[in-house]
Write a protein that binds this DNA or RNA. Structure first.
Length: 423
RNA sequence: GGAGAGAUGGCCGAGUAUGGUCGAAGGCGCUCGCCUGCUAAGCGAGUAUACUGGGAAACCGGUAUCGAGGGUUCGAAUCCCUCUCUCUCCGCCA
């Protein structure tokens, strides 16, 4: 949520930046609603001030044993007017809040302006894609042949876009998760184990609602949502809190399953593990002050990159353009890993600086050194998507005979195992 | 699932029976100043948030907020109703 006062006093900039997202927003309606609101406040608060003053008088007179009937009658006359105005005011407040909840974050000045993902800008590249002396295969062929990914049975017990990892597939998934969590813990992140179901308030806090209700699985009976990312529970841990500046920055990491309906992506990546309804992800979440968030964002991205480097997986870092960046984000770097089976780079992590956008929604604040209460900045990034990392390992480490070499750093997590072979 | 107790500022905690002088005692914490070889202690002062009006600003006024929402009343932290959450006991259970 952007600050309404900021929007009004920087209207041209905000309009321009919203337009750069290809996002339509009725700023005129917002402003007229706000003017209406101020007028009502003026009127109703005068009435209330009168009422309070008279009520005070009544109290004093009653104690002296004097008659107050006339004063009481006087207040009664304005009661219905006050109620009317109060109702109009709450309606106004609600309208404004809804509008603000549906206005995306202001893009950072360094976010490249562009139409869509084709305008994303490559920031850096790491590693050389391996040269194969055979035709590299897709991970779903490799996985099925090795018997470590079972696509059919996942569909049988749930529906399409669900899969089952079996044997070394499941163990490899766990090894990858553990490696990531250990690496992040060593960098100072606190590991968190959090609920996979959250309430509406949390979903609004991080920006999934009201705009993206279609993406979420709902447990209607209990009015809870399955999380689409650990960002939701971990960021909202601090909702409605005033943190001490001594406790900032907060570094958290969390492994959770993530649930996404993938509405509107029918036909996209239907094969394999790339786009599933449920996948594991290790998330990095930071809460920090406004002064440090740009630097913390760079560091967070770096921390996610280190996992790819440890696994020796080639990748590139993309700065998302204004047309591709997420609704709540001011600036986002995507990490894209090289997938030889598909001969392209694919997103494996998304690292975003939300600045105070989520903090305003979730009411996450801190007291700075002067004792002033300020909105915090929130950041998060995948470090990394576990399923997609599994994909990258299978495709990058595949051998001509269909086996897959285990990357060195994962071997301690697999009892020293160095290769997955058929049978 | 059954029975009971509770929710007050950054934190703890009084106030609720008897509605008005309660934005709310006291303590802790924090900030500033004093004092003391240093630290600790001590002394003094200050210390909620949001919205809104005026002002260049310092600041001054108004409104709202004692879990949330409604109601009674001239007036609600205090009385009534609904909901949410927390705790204790019982039952069930990984």
């Amino acid at each position: 949520m952007l600050d309404l006062k900021y929007i009004i006093s920087n209207l041209d900039v905000v309009k321009e930046k919203t337009k750069n997202r290809n996002y339509d927003f009725d700023f005129d309606l917002l402003i007229s609603e706000n003017n209406k609101r101020k007028n009502i406040i003026n009127e109703v608060e005068k009435l209330k001030a009168d009422r309070n003053a008279i009520s005070k008088q009544v109290g004093i007179l009653k104690r002296e044993g004097k008659d107050t009937t006339e004063l009481q009658e006087q207040v009664k006359r304005d009661a219905s007017k006050m109620q009317e105005l109060d109702e109009a005011l709450s309606k106004c407040d609600e309208n404004i809040r809804n509008m603000l909840l549906n206005l995306p974050n202001e893009i950072d000045d360094t976010t490249p302006v562009g139409k869509d993902e084709n305008d994303n800008v490559e920031v850096r590249k790491w590693g050389e894609p391996r040269k194969f002396d055979f035709e590299p295969r897709n991970h779903w062929d490799i996985g099925a042949d090795l018997g470590i990914i079972d696509f059919e049975r996942g569909v049988k017990i749930a529906e399409s876009r669900f899969n089952v990892l079996a044997g070394l597939g499941a163990r490899l998934d766990r090894a990858i998760s553990s490696l990531m969590l250990d690496m992040h813990r060593e960098k100072g992140y606190i590991e968190m184990s959090v609920p996979y179901l959250v309430n509406t308030k949390a979903m609004i806090g991080t920006g999934q609602l009201p705009k993206f209700a279609e993406e979420a699985y709902i447990c209607e009976r209990d009015n809870l949502y399955l999380i689409s990312t650990a960002e939701i529970p971990v960021t909202n841990l601090y909702a409605d809190e005033i943190l001490d500046s001594k406790d900032l920055p907060i570094y958290n990491t969390s492994l959770t399953a993530c649930f996404r309906r993938e509405a509107g992506s029918y036909g996209k990546d239907t094969k394999g593990l790339i786009r599933n309804h449920q996948f594991n992800k290790v998330e990095l979440v930071k809460i920090c002050s406004a002064e440090t968030s740009i630097e913390e964002h760079e560091k967070l991205t770096h921390d996610a990159e280190m996992v790819l480097q440890a696994l020796n997986l080639p990748y590139r870092v993309m700065a998302l353009s204004s047309g591709d960046i997420g609704f709540s984000s001011a600036k986002t770097y995507d990490l894209e890993v090289w997938l030889p089976g598909q001969n392209c780079y694919r997103e494996i992590s998304s690292c975003s600086n939300y600045k105070d956008y989520q903090a305003r929604r979730a009411n996450i604040r801190y007291r700075d050194k002067d004792g002033k209460v300020k909105f915090a900045h929130t950041l998060n990034g995948s470090g990394l998507a576990v399923g997609r990392t599994l994909v990258a390992v299978l495709e990058n480490y595949q051998n001509a005979d269909g086996s897959v070499t285990i990357p060195e750093v994962l071997r301690p997590y697999l009892g020293g195992l160095d290769i997955i072979k058929k049978g």
